[in-house]
Computed example of a mutant assay.
Amino acid sequence: MILSKRTVQLWILIFYLISLPTSFGQKSYKTIRVPDGREIDIVTLDMHIKKAMDSIKLPGLSIAIVNEEDIVYHNTFGFANLKTKKPVTKKTIFEAASLSKPLFAYFLMKMMENGQLDLDKPIYPYLKSIFPEGVIHKDSFEDYKTLTPRIILSHGTGIPNWVKGKPIEIKFKPGTDFSYSGEAYQHLGAAFGTKLGIGWGSKLDSLFLKEAAHPIGMDRSIYTWNNAYNKDVANGHMKGKTNPEINKFKKVGPGFSLHSDAEDYALFLIEMMNPKNIKTTTRDEMLREHNHFKSDNELLQETGQTGWGLGFAQKPTANGLMHLHTGNNHDFQAYAMFIPDQKYGFVMFGNSDNLFPLLETIEKLLGEHF
């Protein structure tokens, strides 16, 4: 049988199309490599997660895993809204909670490279004109004036996590101990936006997108709300009940206001292990230990974490130094970690108050992740 030229061209086109990856720009993987070197079948992982979610009654999940410079696993499960049964899709975004902090730290490190931020210059001069009287307790005022971006990013301020409208009291000399503080991150964001003359609303978010997110491919991560995501945002859940309200933040909350999903955030983990948008020396400074925990630190005693860099906590493991961060906005929880020695990263977002039992179950299959 002699085929026409048109038929031959058609068969060539069909062969080309069926030989492409399952989605444009992505490779198709059947297994993932975990930090201890084992290969885990993706079908097995999917089944493990589904079974665990059913047992825990977790509403929705977005999860991604990185090997080398590739996202080798990204999947979504469950419901974005348990009441309406709206499913989580690969476009669904979640509140990232405190996973906001490392990404904002990365943004500031980029700004440092651009000469727009000095890690060791106190932030107070940029805030003194906008602070109402009484924000800082009079006994802590002199210590507050010494706070720098480096001290804040490594949680060495002595400021409580959140002060909830009370005057800020600093409980130790800044830079001498550890005290996790979302409140301090808020002050840093306000100081930086004020320094640039753009405030800490959508203009600061736009700068973040331009300088930090978009250059590494992140296109579904925002600190201030954009109505374009109205159809793709998940609802939070507490004790199985759906929160009908969506937090549409109008100001950049460096400590809590990021919306993102696992695939987008995994691109940030890839950048941390294989920097393209910042210098390797800048990345190294970000991941270097800046705040070493004292022997009585609860995180050291309970989790084995030993200190904090500029954005991430650190924990030595048998497979290399783990950099990690949890997130908890109560009705949204999140977790991310990576081990540069293994070129391995892991991130998960959940829209409820019971994500962390799922992490414990996943560890039974994948090994130590927290």
Rank of each mutant, 00 (worst) to 15 (best):
H74T: 00
G165H: 04
L365I: 04
A334K: 05
S206G: 15
F131M: 13
D232V: 02
S62C: 11
K50L: 09
F338Q: 03
I222K: 06
I159W: 01
F178K: 07
G311D: 02
E142A: 12
N161E: 09
M286D: 05
P122A: 00
Y29W: 12
T282S: 13
G158H: 01
S181K: 13
K86G: 02
R38G: 07
L3I: 05
T280H: 07
F338R: 02
A105C: 15
H323P: 01
L188N: 06
H369G: 14
I14E: 04
N319T: 00
Q305C: 06
P340E: 04
A96G: 14
G175Q: 12
I246L: 07
G345D: 04
W11Q: 15
G327Q: 05
G307C: 07
I136R: 03
E285Y: 06
E39W: 03
G304H: 09
P275D: 07
T22A: 15
T242Q: 07
Y16F: 15
T44E: 15
P174I: 11
N329A: 11
H292P: 04
L358F: 05
H259P: 03
Q342M: 10
K343Q: 09
F312D: 01
D353G: 00
N274L: 01
R33F: 03
H369E: 08
F346P: 00
F249W: 14
N114Y: 10
A262D: 07
M1D: 00
K279E: 13
E360I: 11
L358M: 11
T282I: 04
G199Q: 14
T361D: 10
M111T: 03
V8W: 08
G134V: 06
Y180H: 12
K231N: 11
N161M: 07
A191H: 07
I222N: 02
E169M: 13
D120F: 06
R33N: 12
G320K: 00
F94H: 09
L196S: 10
I246G: 02
M348V: 15
K5F: 09
M272R: 08
T92K: 09
D331N: 14
T317P: 02
F338L: 02
L207H: 10
H323C: 00
N226C: 03
T176W: 14
K83N: 13
D261L: 14
I339G: 05
I14W: 05
D177R: 13
G199S: 13
P59T: 05
F94W: 12
N329Y: 13
E142G: 06
E68Y: 08
G189I: 06
M218H: 00
E360Y: 06
D70K: 14
V135P: 00
D264V: 10
L204F: 13
L127N: 01
Q186K: 12
Y229K: 04
E360L: 11
N75K: 14
I168Y: 02
G253Q: 10
S206T: 14
M111Q: 15
K210L: 10
I56Q: 06
T194H: 12
E263S: 15
I198T: 12
P167Q: 06
H237P: 06
A191I: 06
I49H: 08
N114S: 15
G320L: 09
G115L: 13
K203L: 13
T361I: 13
G345R: 01
Y124W: 10
S202E: 15
K248G: 01
V347Y: 01
G320M: 07
T76E: 12
L13H: 07
